[in-house]
């Protein structure tokens, strides 16, 4: 609302993105590019309505998320999260990827769309969610956070099931190429950061 996102970069759609269709959030909102290496975030000042009485200076973010290999599909075992760091190795970059036993999930990749990845940091007060992954029937959650009991739904983009988080649990966007699973972006702001790409 208060930020203008520069849509100069074309968005590529790969097979997995198209296959998700309408259960995915609109990826055009995130700028991603395939191949290439990490690009630093930069902000650009733009003046809107320049020269008029309504002139305002706004900041525009030109974001570039790195593309990082985080797992091999064939090595993922059901209900066994694998840890990785993203988008860098700095503070609050702890994340996990998990195969969730053949139940489809929003943003899921793999043949059953059941492979998802999320930040480990609770978006309430930064509590650690490591070891809180659970599967109950068809439900897949992380939580209760040891600090204040927040629980997140891993099939529904990390939406809060019950709890105090100020934001859904940041979901790491994944793309698959053969057996390789890449992290390519994040939906939401990681706890403790003011910008995902600044550490």
């Amino acid at each position: 609302m208060s930020e203008i996102t520069n849509t100069a970069q074309a968005v590529k759609k790969d097979e997995s993105a198209e296959a998700h269709g309408k259960c995915m959030l609109n990826r055009r909102k995130f700028l991603m590019y395939s191949g290439g290496t990490a690009a630093a975030a930069s902000t650009v000042s733009i003046t809107l309505f320049a020269g008029t009485a309504q002139a305002e200076t706004r900041k525009a973010s030109v974001q570039g998320y790195p593309r990082k290999l985080v797992a091999k599909l064939s090595q993922l075992k059901d209900h066994q999260p694998v840890n990785f760091n993203y988008p860098d190795d700095g503070k609050n970059s702890q994340a996990m990827i998990v195969k969730m036993g053949n139940v489809q999930a929003g943003g899921g990749v793999g043949a059953k769309r059941d492979v998802v990845a999320f930040s480990y940091m609770c978006t309430h007060q930064g509590g650690p969610l490591q070891t809180t992954y659970k599967h109950v029937g068809d439900q897949r959650v992380m939580g209760q956070c040891p600090l204040h009991l927040s629980t997140y739904d891993l099939r529904r983009h990390g939406i809060i099931v019950s709890g105090q988080a100020y934001q859904s649990l940041p979901q790491v966007l994944l793309e698959v190429e053969g057996d390789n699973v890449y992290a390519v972006g994040i939906m939401g702001l990681l706890f403790g950061r003011q910008d995902n790409l600044s550490a």
């Binding site: 208060s2 650690p128 403790g192 550490a199």
Partner: peptide, 29 residues
């Protein structure tokens, strides 16, 4: 800014568990 001396919280960013943090939903105009 991200350095403690550059922001109103007096905290270095990225911040730690239980420290000040601003979620996007906690900002408005």
């Amino acid at each position: 800014g991200m350095k403690a001396s550059e922001n109103a919280f007096g905290v270095d960013f990225p911040s730690n568990m239980l420290q000040e943090w601003v979620a996007p939903t906690q900002h408005n105009i």
